[in-house]
Design a binder for these strands. Structure first.
Length: 553
RNA sequence: GCCCCCGUAGCUCAGUUGGAUAGAGCGGCGGUUUCCUAAACCGAAGAUCACAGGUUCGACUCCUGUCGGGGGCGCCA
């Protein structure tokens, strides 16, 4: 168990004991209130709890007095905690015993690349659907942010024991696809592309490819299918080069195969109460206003053709009822420009009684900068910056890191110049450099015949680590697992990018102040163990972000 | 008109379910290399947390309103 969780367990015991002492006033301590913060000021200890503030008013005591009661009931564990203090108005500050800190270091060295992983999500199935861009053109930078977010969340949930499935929903039917087909056909025939058509250079590219292949194209449909296949190929290649591989590609047209979708949707929605859909002017509406939407939505037009919303409902029904292993949670990652769609999708989820299982993450838009100049992006006009262009220019590592550096809620300014810079103001290189530095020290160590036996570090050796910078570094590494849990709880991977920068800072600081390879053989070995553990956490963290951990820079 | 996101140091941003003295990086200033990568480290300077109310023992955080920036609102996809 992590230090963090061990302290929580102790706190929980203490709080329950205190509550039992107030039999006539049984205050319900909700377990989600048992949290510890990581104080910025070290005089507040390694972990701090504000638990005493919650029951204070209820018991008519000051938080400080309640905190004292809790601390009195706290099981003593000298091997875990060196000191517990009540401070300020009622904070409980925990100072971790050195012995426990060394144990944690040993734990990292023993578990190696499994360190930080937990079984929190064991037996739970999560599906993350992301990117899902229409195959009407190459992916642009905005899709890159969705791809990085979804893929990294998938990796993190996986590390926490969940079974994760990554899915891409392909809109391969409908009007836009027909327009795509006609656009390619027109280009192929050397005619003007229709006004509502796609005009990007890639349309010409597809047309030229058809010509070069000497392919026979029967009709507009043939052009459409060819274009979709080609573009999907590009998308897959771009994603692969971006480090993203989907488990499942779900095609919209399969929703319609051999089915009467109108019947299926209305029957499913109206299973319990036949009030969820209605007809008006020949069209079929879903009564999403019953669940907070602004207006009811059409799913089948008067002429019988389905809207996109019909497909989306059918797709949702498929996710929740049509899969081999039932999904415990379905996560959708959308660009913020789709936010207007959230209420209607949540309304349908509510009708199906799956609201609790659906999580929609919106990420704000990306604006690309080159120096001070902002690059405008628009798919329709054909003038946009593709993910491919950015990948080619700044590389996968910088690209992913930049996308993951900010909370999805914040609009992202992506500075191409900064991402390319090989200097300290580029945070990607800062973190990677810490890893490379460690690898470099190990080369030096080998020259001095200093070698570590993997996983066989001795406690008496680790005990030699007494410097504040050394303790600080181990303690920082010990929070890796908590950070991953935070990312999962908030569906936000940016905590990890911040954390890795902090690990790098603490390491660089240690490195500058203390030599690792010295004449003192035992101390050198102890420090090598420490930086070995550091490199493990850095490497694992970067892996979760889909970023390489170079051994040389 | 309605909806969503944002407004924190000169600049770019952290600040996770409300908690202690609001933190980094960059830029600027001053230092650090006989020694494992200076793509690094240290120090001082720099903030009316957009503004005004409210809730609370406690608000950058929650609520209401105003202002400013961005995005979105179709029987389009």
């Amino acid at each position: 168990m992590t230090i963090y969780n061990e302290i929580i367990t102790l706190l929980e015991t203490a709080v329950k004991t205190v509550a039992a002492d107030f039999k006539e006033k049984p205050f319900v301590w909700s377990s989600d209130k048992f949290f510890l913060t990581l104080p910025s000021n070290e005089k507040f200890g390694d972990y701090a709890s504000n638990i005493a503030f919650f029951g204070a008013a209820f018991y008519g005591k000051s938080p400080r007095d309640l905190a004292k009661l809790i601390v009195d009931k706290l099981p003593r564990d000298k091997d875990l905690l060196e000191k517990v203090e009540v401070a300020g108005n009622g904070f409980i500050n925990f100072f971790v015993a050195k012995k426990r800190v060394y144990e944690e270091l040993k734990e990292i060295l023993t578990t190696q690349n499994k360190y930080g992983q937990t079984a929190a999500g064991k037996g739970k199935n999560i599906q993350i659907e992301f990117v899902s861009a229409n195959p009407t053109g190459p992916l642009h930078v905005g899709h890159g942010r969705g791809a990085a977010t979804g893929d990294t969340l998938a990796r993190i949930f996986n590390a926490l024991g969940y079974t994760v499935q990554k899915e891409y929903y392909v809109n391969n039917i409908g009007n836009q696809m027909n327009i795509l087909g006609r656009s390619v056909q027109a280009r192929f025939a050397g005619k003007d592309i229709p006004d509502d058509g796609y005009k990007g250079d890639y349309i010409r590219e597809i047309a030229e490819q058809i010509a070069a292949d000497g392919r026979q194209m029967a009709d507009e449909n043939a052009f459409r299918e060819y274009a979709i296949d080609t573009i999907l190929g590009w998308i897959k290649k771009d994603l692969a080069d971006f480090g993203v591989v989907f488990d499942n590609w779900f095609f919209e047209n399969t929703l319609y195969e051999g089915k009467d979708l109108k019947k299926e949707i209305t029957d499913t929605l109206n299973r319990e109460y036949p009030t969820k859909t209605y007809e008006e002017d020949g069209a079929v509406f879903v009564k999403t206003t019953d669940f907070g939407d602004d207006k009811d939505r059409v799913i089948f037009r008067a002429d019988g053709r389905p809207t996109y919303f019909a497909s989306d409902i059918a797709y949702m029904i498929n996710k929740f009822t049509g899969r081999k292993s039932p999904l415990d949670q379905v996560i959708n990652i959308w660009g913020a420009d789709h936010h207007g769609y959230v209420p209607r999708m949540e309304a349908v989820a509510s009708m199906l009684a799956y609201k609790e299982k659906l999580k929609i993450i919106l990420y704000q838009l990306v604006s690309l900068k080159r120096g001070k100049e902002t690059v405008q992006m628009s798919t329709r006009s054909g003038e946009f910056v593709t993910l491919r262009q950015v990948l080619d220019e700044v590389g996968k590592d910088a690209c992913r890191f930049f996308f993951l550096m900010r909370s999805p809620d914040s609009a992202l300014d992506f500075d191409l110049e900064l991402a390319k810079k090989h200097s300290s103001d580029n945070p990607v290189y800062y973190v990677q450099y810490a890893h490379a530095r460690i690898c470099s020290v190990f080369k030096e160590a080998v020259k001095n015949s200093l070698m570590l036996d993997a996983g066989s570090s001795k406690t008496e050796t680790l005990n030699l680590l007494q410097e504040p910078e050394e303790m600080q570094l181990i303690k920082k590494l010990a929070n890796f697992s908590k950070i991953l849990a935070d990312c999962a709880r908030t569906y936000d991977p940016h905590w990890l990018t911040i954390y890795l920068q902090e690990v790098a800072t603490v390491f660089h600081n240690f490195y500058t102040r203390h030599r690792i390879v010295t004449d003192n053989r035992e101390l050198s070995l102890a420090r090598l163990e420490l930086i070995k553990a550091t490199s493990i956490v850095l490497k694992d963290g970067l892996d979760l972000l889909g970023i390489s951990a170079p051994s040389k820079m």
